[in-house]
Nucleic acid binder design. Sequence first.
DNA 1: GAAGTCATGTAAACGGTTACATGATTTT
DNA 2: AAAATCATGTAACCGTTTACATGACTTC
Lengths: 174, 174
Amino acid sequence: MELSPTAYVILGMLAVHPMSGYDIKTTVDYSVRFFWAASYGQIYPELSRLSEAGLVEGAAEPASGRRRTVYRLTTAGQDELADWLAQEPQVFETRDEALLKLFFADAAPDTAAASIDAKRRYHEAVLAQLREIETTGKPEGHPSVVLRFGIESCEWMVAWCEREAGRLREGAVR
Amino acid sequence: MELSPTAYVILGMLAVHPMSGYDIKTTVDYSVRFFWAASYGQIYPELSRLSEAGLVEGAAEPASGRRRTVYRLTTAGQDELADWLAQEPQVFETRDEALLKLFFADAAPDTAAASIDAKRRYHEAVLAQLREIETTGKPEGHPSVVLRFGIESCEWMVAWCEREAGRLREGAVR
DNA sequence: GAAGTCATGTAAACGGTTACATGATTTT
DNA sequence: AAAATCATGTAACCGTTTACATGACTTC
C-alpha cells in the first residue's frame, strides 16, 4: 500500500495507544511536529481513508456527553506500520527563511545580523518547549532519543548563531 | 507587495547578476536548495509574474542560436528584495522521515539502527556536495557563511548519528 | 548518429494549511 | 455569562513537484 508519510504519523500514534483525531493532533503538536507537522485538515480525512482501507478501526466512545470516535490499529495497520518502519527514509527537507536571507544578505549587509538573531530566537524558543516536554513528559524509549536529538541540535544551532553573530560584529564578513 | 519566498529566491539570484530561468534553476540547485528548493514549474511562471509586476525585466539574449531570455532586477525589484531582507524571517520547517521512523521505532525496535544509518548517509552525502562546492566554487561574503553553516551542521548531524548508533548497539535504548 | 545539455514552458496531481462551521462541555 | 477546551469535519486555496512537450545546439 502507498500511503503519505502523514498517514504513517497517524498509524504510529495509534500504535502507542488508541485515541481520537483530536488526541492525535494534540499529541503530534506535543511531539513530532518539530520535524513532521500535521493539521486537522489532514488528520480527519486521512482517518476516514485509513478506516476504509482497514488499517484502523473507529469506535464511538463519547466522553462525558461529547461525541467522540476513538481509533485503534487493526492487525493490518500494525503490519503496514512495521513495513514502513523497515523501509529506508526518503524525505529530508528543510525550509529556513533565515538562512535564505543570510545567503542573499550581500544585497543588504546590515540585515544579516537580524536574520541570524531571529534564527537564534527561534531555536531558543523550540529549545524551551523541548525542555518543558522533557521535564513534564519524561519520555522513554525511542521518543526520548529523538527528544534528545531535538534538544542537542537546537543547542548547537543557538551556539552557531551566537558565534556567527559575534563574527559579524567583528566585521569578519562584509 | 506580497510575494512567495520562492519569488524572493529569484530576486536574490538576479541581484547577484542577470540570468535566465534555466540559470536560476542551476544556481539554486548548486546553493540554496539545501534549505530552499525550487523547480522549473515555479521558476518560469514566477518570472512572468515578477515581470508583469515590474520587479524584473527580461531581454531576449540568444546564446549560440538557442533562444534565451535573460532577466535582470529593476530598481523596484531591488527595493522589494531589500524590504524582504529587512523583515523578520518566519519560516522554519523541517521534514525528516528518519527522525519520524526513529520516533515510532518502539513499534519495531530492530528498524531504529537502519533509520539512523540512513540519516547519517544522507548528511554525509550532503556534506560531500557542500565540500565540493567549497573547493570548486570558492564562495565569499554571506554565501560563504551559509556554506560553512551547512558544512558544520552536517558534521554535527553525522557525529550525532554515529554516537547514537553506538548507544543503540550497546543496548542503551530498548 | 546518439546522448547530453541548454532552454522554456504547461498541466495535472499532490500534500498541506487556513479558515470556517458547528456544537457540547468545562472552567473561570 | 463568557471564555476556553473538546471534538469533528469541510472547502478553498496555495505552493510545489512531476511529468510531459518541444526544439536547438554540442559533445562523444
